[in-house]
Amino acid sequence: MKSLEELQAIRDRKKAEINNRTTGENNIRIIVGMATCGIAAGARPVLQAFGEEIESRKLENVTLGQTGCIGLCKYEPIVEVFVPGQDKVTYVHMDAKKAREVITSHILNGKPIAEYTYKE
């Protein structure tokens, strides 16, 4: 079973790591809607998947955030991606698998996945 001793080992490793994470206006922002509508539709594992991908791929220029209800409850889980200098991309009906695809296609290769975006 995981214990605080193990956490200490992770802490010591983290302290030794050089933190290259950048903060500022040039960061890509990924925002997940976490209101009642989003949570009920499955936003919690979506947020988790983005967090895991950003951590494991060491994406130091990407920040992950949470927000409330965006007003399109029937399209939840909704994820907004802000790439500096580009139009905002709104992904709808997201799940953990789609989140990982957005990381590889949109964030890493600069190709938004049109199929998953919001269409009026």
Binding site: E6, I10, E55
Partner: peptide, 13 residues
């Protein structure tokens, strides 16, 4: 001890 609790690896743990 000062390491951010919101770090994803720590949260996963």
């Amino acid at each position: 001890d000062g390491v951010e609790i919101e770090n994803v690896e720590i949260l996963s743990f």
